[in-house]
Amino acid sequence: MITPNKLEQLAQQLGGALPPGLKSAADDFEAKAKTILQSQLSKLDMVSREEFDRQAAVLAKTRMMVEQLEARLAALEAEKGANDDNA
């Protein structure tokens, strides 16, 4: 997620890119750019990096459990098939 410091840096870069004749309005522009960026970014459906990492860990654990269950099921089916052949 973009932090307030990143927004501040981006606003400063945008202000720094203004032509020399507009430098007097740069501070006002930076403030408005920061406000607009914050507003637009808040509308996006994003999660924090921490939440993403948590969900990735849950997914990895779930995949491992599914693989273990698939292996157990295959073993049980093989055992049942062997028992059916012996009967």
Score class of each variant (00 low, 15 high):
2 I>G: 10
2 I>V: 14
4 P>G: 09
4 P>N: 11
5 N>H: 14
5 N>P: 04
6 K>V: 12
6 K>H: 14
7 L>E: 08
8 E>D: 15
8 E>Q: 15
9 Q>T: 12
10 L>C: 00
10 L>A: 14
10 L>K: 04
11 A>Q: 04
11 A>E: 04
11 A>T: 02
12 Q>F: 02
12 Q>Y: 01
13 Q>F: 08
14 L>M: 13
15 G>E: 02
15 G>L: 05
16 G>M: 01
17 A>N: 12
18 L>W: 04
19 P>H: 15
19 P>G: 10
19 P>N: 07
19 P>V: 11
19 P>R: 12
19 P>F: 04
20 P>M: 09
20 P>H: 02
20 P>I: 00
21 G>I: 05
21 G>S: 11
22 L>T: 07
24 S>F: 07
24 S>D: 12
24 S>C: 05
24 S>E: 09
25 A>S: 08
26 A>K: 01
26 A>V: 03
26 A>P: 03
27 D>F: 02
28 D>E: 12
30 E>S: 09
30 E>L: 01
30 E>T: 05
30 E>H: 10
31 A>Q: 10
32 K>D: 00
32 K>N: 06
32 K>L: 11
33 A>G: 12
33 A>L: 06
33 A>R: 09
34 K>Q: 01
34 K>F: 06
34 K>E: 01
34 K>W: 01
35 T>G: 05
35 T>I: 09
35 T>A: 15
36 I>M: 00
37 L>V: 07
38 Q>M: 02
38 Q>L: 00
39 S>D: 14
40 Q>Y: 04
40 Q>L: 07
42 S>H: 04
42 S>P: 02
43 K>F: 08
44 L>Q: 11
46 M>W: 14
46 M>E: 08
46 M>P: 07
47 V>M: 15
47 V>E: 02
47 V>D: 05
48 S>P: 04
48 S>V: 12
48 S>Q: 14
50 E>R: 11
51 E>W: 10
51 E>C: 06
54 R>S: 14
54 R>Y: 07
54 R>L: 15
54 R>N: 15
56 A>G: 12
56 A>F: 06
56 A>M: 14
57 A>M: 12
57 A>S: 15
57 A>N: 14
59 L>D: 13
59 L>W: 13
60 A>N: 07
60 A>F: 05
60 A>I: 01
61 K>H: 08
62 T>G: 07
62 T>S: 13
63 R>M: 06
63 R>S: 01
63 R>A: 03
64 M>P: 05
64 M>N: 08
64 M>V: 00
64 M>Y: 09
65 M>G: 03
65 M>V: 07
65 M>P: 08
65 M>T: 10
66 V>M: 08
66 V>C: 08
67 E>R: 08
69 L>I: 06
70 E>T: 09
70 E>N: 15
70 E>K: 15
73 L>C: 09
73 L>G: 05
73 L>Y: 08
77 E>T: 09
77 E>N: 13
77 E>F: 00
78 A>R: 11
79 E>D: 04
80 K>D: 13
80 K>L: 14
80 K>Q: 15
81 G>V: 05
81 G>M: 00
82 A>N: 07
82 A>I: 00
82 A>L: 05
83 N>T: 09
84 D>G: 02
84 D>H: 06
84 D>N: 14
84 D>F: 08
85 D>C: 06
86 N>R: 15
86 N>A: 10
87 A>L: 10
